[in-house]
């Protein structure tokens, strides 16, 4: 559905994108993550036909961004990081205006507008002026706008940026609905916990280079070289840590200074699980109060990848 090959964008001395190659299949929800200035918006703008690449190629729905922009525009819905405000335009007029730009007329237009307003839960605001809406509502309206012509691909640049928790949850639920409708979505965001819940694939970009692309499971397993367990013992954690280090599969055992009785244990990848840690401690007469496997999340994966720890 979306494919880029050695996509490069150079602004004077700045290389915004450096030979970026990625593939997003139909129905994928692709989370595009990276620090500010990494090249996320540049990539999305090239795919949205707003920018021309310096070199390389990009295809959306089989059409090239170099010369087939008109075809692409009918297939995509783009939500920029800034909401375009028209003063003195009502919600319905706003949607009617964009429907007319996509040449949707007559009864079709009315039906489509009614449907997208229902989908985005904005029906009760249809006569409100656009510039009177809250940021969360504006973002829902932006999604309503891009759905008007039923595009196959949605390009969403920071759709949850600046929203309060409730509005973020509403947007997330809306995006889930769109995922269920079979849309291919490329979404950039800083809120990584939400992306991991929503996306089946992620791409991590830094300084214009794609450091990782693949499924969420792949990145987590790639980042996690060893298992980490947290164990709480009733007394003598130092001795317990020393006892653990005697085991072949334990690479590291450190007492956590800020948490009483807790030990962080790094276990070799070869171990089936971390249950042997409990057994070992009980055998050595330590009273184990608690043990749990430390979860690794997308945020941590992002931090490690962007630090260059994963190539």
């Amino acid at each position: 559905m979306i494919e880029t090959r050695y996509l490069t964008k150079v602004y004077k001395d700045l290389v915004a994108l450096d030979k970026l190659s990625l593939t997003i299949d139909q129905g994928d929800i692709y989370g595009f993550i990276g620090p500010n200035g990494a090249g996320k918006t540049t990539t999305i703008r090239i795919l949205a036909t707003l920018l021309r690449p310096t070199s390389g190629q990009a295809f959306v729905c089989g059409y090239s961004v170099n010369g087939q922009a008109k075809h692409i525009r009918r297939k995509i819905g783009y939500v920029p990081d800034e909401f375009g405000v028209y003063e003195d335009m009502s919600v319905t007029e706003y949607l009617e205006f964009f429907a007319s730009l996509y040449e949707i007329t007559g009864k079709d237009r009315k039906r489509v507008i009614r449907d997208v307003l229902e989908l985005t839960d904005l029906s009760y605001k249809k006569t409100a002026e656009v510039d009177s809406l809250s940021r969360g509502m504006r973002q829902r309206l932006a999604l309503a706008r891009v759905l008007i012509h039923d595009p196959d691909v949605l390009l969403l640049d920071e759709p949850a940026s600046g929203l309060d928790p409730r509005a973020r949850i509403e947007i997330r639920e809306l995006l889930k609905e769109l995922r269920n409708m079979g849309k291919t979505i490329l979404i950039s965001s800083h809120i990584l916990s939400e992306l991991s819940e929503l996306c089946n694939k992620v791409g991590i970009i830094e300084s214009g280079k794609l450091l990782f692309t693949g499924t969420v499971t792949e990145i987590l397993s790639k980042v996690r070289s060893n298992e980490i367990a947290l164990v709480q013992v009733r007394e003598a954690p130092e001795r317990a840590a020393a006892a653990l280090l005697e085991h072949d599969l334990v690479i590291r055992a450190e007492v956590l200074a800020d948490r009483e009785g807790w030990i962080e244990v790094e276990v070799d990848k070869g171990a089936d699980d971390v249950s042997f840690v409990t057994r070992l401690l009980i055998e050595r007469s330590f009273a184990v109060l608690s043990i749990r496997e430390q979860e690794i999340d997308l945020e941590e994966a992002f931090m490690q990848v962007t630090k260059g720890q994963v190539a």
Partner: peptide, 13 residues
């Protein structure tokens, strides 16, 4: 300046 041009630019107008 009001960021509406960017929306127009991605439509097939």
């Amino acid at each position: 300046e009001d960021s509406s041009l960017i929306l127009l630019a991605t439509t097939p107008v």
